[in-house]
Design a protein around this nucleic acid. Sequence first.
DNA 1: AGCATACATCAAGACTTTTTGATATGTCAA
DNA 2: TTGACATATCAAAAAGTCTTGATGTATGCT
Lengths: 109, 109
Amino acid sequence: MTTTPARSLGRMAGLFRALADETRLGILVRLRDGEQCVCDLADALDAGQSRLSFHLKTLKDAGLLRDRRQGRWVYYALDREAVAEALDALEALGGSARGFRLAAARRGD
Amino acid sequence: MTTTPARSLGRMAGLFRALADETRLGILVRLRDGEQCVCDLADALDAGQSRLSFHLKTLKDAGLLRDRRQGRWVYYALDREAVAEALDALEALGGSARGFRLAAARRGD
DNA sequence: AGCATACATCAAGACTTTTTGATATGTCAA
DNA sequence: TTGACATATCAAAAAGTCTTGATGTATGCT
């Protein structure tokens, strides 16, 4: 365990770049509770087909999503390990961030 | 406490966008252990003056940094609460991500 | 085989971010 | 008050990202 927050800042920057878009965050939220096929995502989020495909690819390339074809459908799922990697980087930065925040919540602000 | 991960995905996307750059992550790492003046950051990171200034502003606008002038120098410091906000969003997404990751570490992968 | 469905990829343009060098501002010291 | 230093801001070009519509590919149905 090192005191340096990230193996490679470049890799972390890539992860955060993938997270830096509202549509993509929306996708991740939808996938919180399990995999979904593209068609379901297309219904839920209000995104055209190629736009959605683009964002799914962006997330997948960043390692945040896995996909699996089943017949005509492609199912995407969160890769929780990648999320955890980003979490670790932030925690290394934040130091006592969570304690800080919980304290703030306790204070009521 | 809601089950929805973020008050506003837009705000979260903004935070992540600020984190989505290697130079800026480098700045945040440098500030982990306390505030530093721009000149120290300029020495440490290998960034030209206006470039550094630009990234500091980007981080500040996102709420991740606070600044304070003292004489000729300007000191920047992490805003741990903003880091915590990003952390919360990720945790809401990741679900059992941390447990997952710790388990992976225990397994040795 | 032929067609429909589900999705990916591509190409062009719009838009945003980043970098660079030049100039502006605020502060101190002589 | 002038000059030097630390930093910010600006403007233009370069690079990157996102959206859109068109086309491509895989699969299953008939």
